[in-house]
Every structure is written in C-alpha cells, then in structure tokens.
Amino acid sequence: MTPIEDELGEQVRRDFKAVKYFPFGNEPGAPFILTSDPFSYLQAWLDNKINRIKRDRKKQRSLLIKAKYFAELAEGFHNSSKEAKMPSKGTLIYYTFINLVKTFLLARNYDLETTMEHHGLSLPSNKKTQLKLTPIGNDGISIFHEFAKTIGVEINNGDGLEIKFDEILRELPEVHEIGYALNLFPNTKRKHLPIDIVIRTNKNRNRIYYTLAYEKKFDKIMKTDKLLKGVFKDKIYPIDCKSDSSKKYFRSNLIFNYTCNSSNSHKRAYKRICDDFKQLSINQMITRNGYRNYLNLEPSRMHRLSATLAFGYYIGTVARYRPTLNKEILKGRYQAVIQEAVSSCPNQFFYLLISHITNQICAIPMAKIE
C-alpha cells in the first residue's frame, strides 16, 4: 500500500485489477480491449451479437444488421478520408461520424430507416460561424438530437437554436490548449481540468467512495474555485493529503457499504459511483498509455462527442456548399485549430464511441507506432 493509499484509502481492486471509472457501461475492473483498428473490432463485435440471436422476437437481429451496414459505411468513408485533403477530407470525416452515430443508435434499439431522418443541424446562408439546431418536431428523427439524448447530455433548444463555432471548439479537449494559445477564446479561462480519479475503500474494505485530485499549478489558469460551488459542492469536498503536497484532493460525499469479495456487490457499487459522476461532466482522452480524465469546469449544453459531431458537420457543410467561407476558415484565424481537430478528433471519436457501443474499454496498443 502506498503512503497516499494509507492516508486516503486503498484503491478498490477486483480480481487483483484496479477498478477505474469509465462511462461506457463496462463491468468494474474490465480489461482494456487493445486494438489498432477499432472498426474491425466493432465489426467482429456486431457479427458475434448477430450470430448469437436465434429467435428475433424483438427484431434486435434486424437492428444489428443495419448497425453493421452503417459501421461498414463509416469505415469506408474513414479509409477514403485518410487519402483525401481538405476540404474534401472534412466531408468524408463527417460522413464517417454520422454513420458511426447511426450504428450507435441502432445498437441502442433505435429503428432507423422507418421515418424521415435529418441531420438536426444546418448552416444558414447568412451565417459564417453559427450552426442552427433543427426544431424538434414530429416530422422525423433528428440524428443530432437523438444522439445527444442517448449519449447522456440532451440538447435543450430552449437555450437557443444557434451553436457558435467557438462553443463547439471549447468543448473539444483535443484542441483546448491550442485554441487558447492562439487567443481564439478571449475573456475566458481554460476549462478542461486534468484530474486523477481513484475509487477507494477503507482499511476494512467494507466502505467505498472516490477521490479526485488535480495539480495545484492549474489554480492560476483555471477557475478551480468552481469545485467548491454548485453541483461540485453537492458531490465532493476538499481534503488534506500530507503524502502529496503538489495536488489538491477532494473526496466524494457519496460513501456506502459494499462487500469486497462479492461480484454482485462490486457491480452495484460501480454503477452507483458511475451514476454519481454523470453530473460532473468528466471527459476522457484516449492515449497510448491509457485514458486521461478531464473535468469540464464550464459544461455547456453539449456532450463532448456531440460537439465532435457538430464540428464534423460544420467542416463538411462548409466544404460542400460554401467555397468562399471554406477559403476564409482554412486561411484565417481558425486554420491551425481546424487542422489540429481534423488530425486528432476522429481517432478519439472512434475509440470513445465504439467503447460506448460495445460497453468495453477500447484502447490503443502501446506497440502501435504511427
């Protein structure tokens, strides 16, 4: 046991593996699915699900066959995008995103192909950097709205029908730092706070809770005082940690009994803790060394993956319909951040969304060298 564990509590383990937080609906202590090709893993997972269904009373097999079709489309557009250059690359990236989103919705029992489907977003001809949300009605399915609702942060049209491009970019941890370096978000502070999350237990291993920690250096560049207010105050409170003076630590208000040698108790406890995290707006970044967690200090009305989909829609729509605007954004103030997002966001989107689809933790093998 480390000095920090001795002071704050031992990290919870199941079958000798550390139990870590992930939002994918996975089992506690689930192993990483290491794959250099997440699309191939998704295809294999769908094939396995389809082949295991013998009696299709609820039409799940039919939905999964459709999901496989859209997954194949997504992979095809992705392969084409790797050979393309901007602006055509932007269109292919969006088609990859939207088809993978349809795979996700079908895997969540949405029966697509039965009514009119629309993107849920538009770029008005008199706007340059503002998307418009499609009003929710009874004339079909808005893919953007249904995805947002199902992934966990429902879009509220009552907050306004316009989504500014800056708002979208600020929701993407992948380009957060470069956006501030280029002064694209004046009069705001950085908001994606890197945090360590540890699910802990007491010395008797019969009580479970969690801790959050961040490096003190972020106090100067972020509004970390928000951790003492609002929803954060309802969920966590500050604690001292003498074993580590470089970080600030917080402990969950949530603490409850569990049985450390019971699989059912582990599952119930893990689900309860994951539910507690939902209101804290924690984003994951996949790296070659595993996942990193970021606490969103200023959550907007969009889930991080919804923002990625909106970004794809914007660059794809500009490429198809707005040649003058395309020249402006690719050569103007957004040039570097768009290029960075085009380079880094798709792979993040693939691994994260496929993890949500499969309820597994998909990760990049360390042996993979780009």
Rank of each mutant, 00 (worst) to 15 (best):
K220C: 06
L64H: 11
I361R: 11
S300F: 00
N253A: 09
E146A: 01
D234V: 01
Q284F: 09
T96Y: 07
Q60V: 05
Q339T: 09
C362P: 01
G9L: 13
E72T: 14
N253K: 15
K58A: 07
N257F: 12
Q335H: 03
Y180F: 13
I141W: 02
I163W: 05
Y334I: 00
F349E: 00
C274S: 15
D37L: 03
Y321R: 06
V318W: 07
L182F: 10
S246E: 15
Y351W: 12
M1W: 11
R55Y: 06
A310H: 03
D275A: 05
I136Y: 12
F218I: 05
P186D: 05
A67S: 08
Y237C: 06
L8K: 04
P3W: 08
T201S: 15
P173K: 03
Y258I: 05
C260G: 09
L133M: 07
K127S: 13
K59E: 15
R251K: 14
E117T: 03
Y69F: 15
T201F: 10
R205M: 13
M302W: 03
P31V: 10
K327H: 09
G90Q: 01
I98N: 00
A148T: 04
I197C: 11
A336V: 04
P124A: 09
N206S: 13
E171F: 00
Q11V: 13
S122V: 00
R272S: 14
N206K: 13
D47I: 02
S245N: 13
S122K: 07
K248A: 08
T134N: 11
R57Y: 02
H145L: 03
Q335E: 05
S88C: 04
K229L: 15
K149Q: 13
R268P: 00
N293A: 11
H303A: 04
E174M: 06
V175N: 03
I141C: 01
G230F: 04
E146S: 08
Q279S: 14
P124R: 13
H78N: 13
D15Q: 14
L46D: 04
K68C: 05
Y95L: 12
A336Q: 07
F70Y: 15
